[in-house]
C-alpha cells in the first residue's frame, strides 16, 4: 500500500482497519504520525461535544418558549378591530358631511370683475421712461383713440400701460384682423392725442398692438406681460389706460365696457355689458341696492332697455347694499 492509499482510507473511514494499512503504518513514519495526529484530533472533536454550556441556557430557552406560548395564547381581542373600523367609518362620514355643508353654504361664484387700482388724489406721477417706438406700419392707418378715465385726471402717458392695454385685443383675434379693427371701433375722439406726445400729458391711442409687441422684447414672455401689467397699475392713469383697452376689447367682442361707481366708498369696478344693457354713451344709470336684494333704478331706463336683465346682471356682482352709478366707458 502506498501513502496516498492509506490517507484515502483514513479520510473515507476515519480509521485504519485493513491489514495492508497496518503493515504500511509499521513501515512509514510519516503515515504513522499523520494517523496519530488524526486520532488525537478525532478524540478532541469528541471532547468538544462534552463542553459545558452556559448555566443560564436552559432558563433562557424555557423563558423564550413560555413567552412565545403566552403570546400565542393571548386573546385576540376582536373588539379592537371593530373599534378601529367604526372610528374609520365615522371619520369618513364626518368628512363627507363637512364637504356637503360647505357645498351647500358656499355662495354662488360671482362673475369675475376686475377692480382697477385708483391713483391717489394729488399724487404726482413719476417721469415716464423714454420710449422709442418704431414707425407705424404702412398698412395700418393711425387711428386716434379717446380715453376717458372715470375719475382719474389726465396724466402723463404710460407706454407700458399702453402696450398692456392693447394686449387683450390682440389675443382675441389674429394679427391682421387686429390691425384692421382699431380704426373702426375707436370712438370719436373727445380729446385726440398723438403718438409720442408724452410731454403734453396726452395718452397715445391703443391702436397698435402688433407694434407695441415688437417694441418691447420682454413682452415675448409671460413674465414680461405680468411686469407690464404691474407697471401699468402702478403708474397714474394706468387704470384709465387699462380701462380704455378693456373698452376697446369689449367693443370688439360685442359688449360694452362700463364702470360701476359705488357710493359706499368702494373703488370703482369695471365690467362689460351687452349693448342693450349698457348705458347710452355719455350717460349714467343710477340705482340703489337694498339690503333685501331689491335693486331700484334712480330713473326709468330709456326705451329699448332691459331693466330686468340689467338688474339681474348687477345682482350677480354680489354688491353690498348702497347707491351705485353705472357709466359707459369710452
Amino acid at each position: 500500500m502506498r501513502c496516498e492509499e492509506l490517507r484515502r482510507e483514513l479520510d473515507e473511514t476515519g480509521e485504519i482497519t485493513s491489514p495492508a494499512a497496518r503493515d504500511h503504518l509499521a513501515a512509514c513514519a510519516d503515515c504513522a504520525r499523520a494517523v496519530a495526529l488524526w486520532e488525537e484530533a478525532r478524540a478532541t472533536l469528541r471532547e468538544l461535544d462534552q463542553e459545558s454550556t452556559p448555566p443560564f441556557l436552559h432558563a433562557r430557552v424555557m423563558a423564550n418558549l413560555r413567552a412565545a406560548e403566552r403570546e400565542r395564547l393571548a386573546p385576540r381581542r376582536p373588539w379592537r378591530l371593530a373599534a378601529r373600523s367604526v372610528a374609520a367609518l365615522a371619520a369618513v362620514l364626518a368628512i363627507s358631511f363637512a364637504g356637503w355643508i360647505v357645498w351647500r353654504v358656499a355662495p354662488e361664484t360671482p362673475v369675475p370683475v376686475e377692480v382697477p387700482t385708483a391713483p391717489r388724489a394729488g399724487e404726482r406721477a413719476p417721469e415716464p421712461e423714454p420710449v422709442t417706438l418704431p414707425p407705424p406700419l404702412p398698412e395700418v392707418p393711425p387711428a386716434p383713440a379717446t380715453v376717458s378715465p372715470p375719475r382719474a385726471p389726465s396724466t402723463r402717458p404710460a407706454p407700458a400701460a399702453l402696450r398692456e392695454a392693447a394686449a387683450p385685443a390682440e389675443e382675441a383675434m389674429p394679427r391682421s384682423e387686429a390691425e384692421a379693427k382699431p380704426a373702426a371701433v375707436a370712438e370719436p375722439p373727445a380729446t385726440p392725442v398723438a403718438l409720442g406726445t408724452a410731454a403734453d400729458g396726452a395718452v397715445p391711442p391703443p391702436a397698435r398692438p402688433s407694434l407695441s409687441r415688437r417694441a418691447t422684447p420682454e413682452r415675448e414672455t409671460a413674465e414680461g406681460t405680468r411686469a407690464a401689467r404691474a407697471r401699468a397699475a402702478r403708474q397714474p392713469g394706468g387704470e384709465a389706460l387699462t380701462m380704455a383697452a378693456r373698452s376697446a376689447a369689449a367693443t370688439r367682442s360685442g359688449e360694452v365696457a362700463c364702470t360701476l361707481f359705488a357710493g359706499t366708498g368702494e373703488p370703482p369696478r369695471t365690467l362689460t355689458l351687452p349693448e342693450p344693457l349698457a348705458p347710452a354713451p355719455g350717460s349714467e344709470i343710477g340705482f340703489t341696492l337694498l339690503p333685501d336684494g331689491e335693486l331700484r333704478f334712480d330713473e326709468p331706463l330709456p326705451e329699448g332697455s332691459e331693466p330686468g336683465a340689467l338688474a339681474e346682471r348687477l345682482r350677480r356682482l354680489a354688491l353690498s347694499p348702497g347707491d351705485y352709478r353705472l357709466r359707459r366707458d369710452g
Binding site: 461535544d49 441556557l57 436552559h58 423564550n64
Partner: peptide
C-alpha cells in the same frame, strides 16, 4: 438536547450569543 444543539450552533456560527439565539429559535 440543549447542550448538544448549543455546542453545534456555537461551532457552526462561531459566536456564543448567536449560538444562544439560534438554540432558542431552534427549540421554538
Amino acid at each position: 438536547h440543549e447542550g448538544t444543539l448549543y455546542r453545534l450552533a456555537r461551532r457552526l456560527l462561531g459566536d456564543e450569543e448567536e449560538a444562544l439565539d439560534a438554540v432558542q429559535e431552534t427549540f421554538l
